[in-house]
Design a protein around this nucleic acid. Structure first.
Ligand SMILES: [Mn+2]
Ligand SMILES: [Mn+2]
Ligand SMILES: [Zn+2]
Ligand SMILES: [Zn+2]
Lengths: 141, 141
DNA sequence: CCCTCAAGCAGGAACCATTCCTGTTTGAGG
DNA sequence: CCTCAAACAGGAATGGTTCCTGCTTGAGGG
């Protein structure tokens, strides 16, 4: 799905749940959409303050928690690194650069199918997290 | 690789690096080997105190950090859940039960090959993290 | 067999990203 | 224009992990 489409589906998701699309929330969604590096709460906060100087870090966290709760975004936790947020909730690989911290997407043509795992193991799957850690092509050309 | 084999390779790894296999470290490794649920530092600490009542939580953390540093074990960080430790550093899927917190292994017969991703993206891969979140067969029979 | 000293340890303080709390603001609906 | 619940800003609290300090241990040299 394209980023602009995902953005609209997030906004739609908020409305469908009877939640308000306030300027603060709009700013957070906008940044999540524009910043392809899977930004952290602090990064989003700093970017949001440029268009909306009075926004607080609490509100950014609250908005991210809200979006996460309604499964409109994905929260990724790391070791020794702030949490990062992924606007794409579809199953895909994230390539995490240990040098610059950027996280890019990698759409695998033949991903592992949860259904197959469920059949084999009896484990009921809700979410999938697929990650490669390493060095991106920009950092090691 | 079998658990007993992995245990020996951890012990061997310590010796190869000129590190001491103290009773405290031995206890931590032993528990990591025995407990298939990918235990947390606190869980390891509590189990270690049964055979070695004077061991401190600091030492458990230090030992885990040491093993991690030398890539003999794997640290897994989660949202709203303590870090967990995986004695198996090979690429495999972890099935994480959101109800009981247990983490089991799933050896995929056809995993995604890092080499393929590297060739396609130019991203140099060091580590792989593959996880399914859901409910295990014990919790939802 | 004892001494030395660096590695390792126990206990507790400090850290800091995230969550929680409280009083204030906002704006949709009446 | 009023009302009131939702949302917000600012700041305090939380807690798993890391850091710090002084003490212990045991391998290796004399
Ligand atoms: Mn992504
Ligand atoms: Mn595992
Ligand atoms: Zn990079
Ligand atoms: Zn379970």
């Amino acid at each position: 799905m394209k980023r602009e489409q995902i953005k609209h589906s997030i906004v739609r998701g908020l409305k469908e749940q009877g939640l308000k699309l306030t300027p603060q929330r709009s700013a957070v969604v906008e940044i999540l959409t524009r910043d392809k590096s899977h930004p952290s709460a602090l990064t989003i906060f700093r970017a949001a303050r440029e268009t909306r100087p009075s926004i607080s870090l609490s509100t950014v966290y609250a908005t991210l928690a809200l979006l996460k709760k309604h499964r409109l975004i994905r929260e990724l936790e790391f070791e020794g690194m702030d949490n990062r947020y992924d606007m794409d909730t579809d199953n895909h690989f994230n390539l995490i650069c240990l040098q610059c911290g950027r996280i890019e997407d990698y759409i695998n043509p033949a991903p592992v199918l949860p259904e197959v795992v469920e059949k084999q193991t009896g484990f009921r799957i809700h979410d999938v997290r697929l990650e490669f850690y390493g060095v991106c092509s920009t950092c090691a050309p």
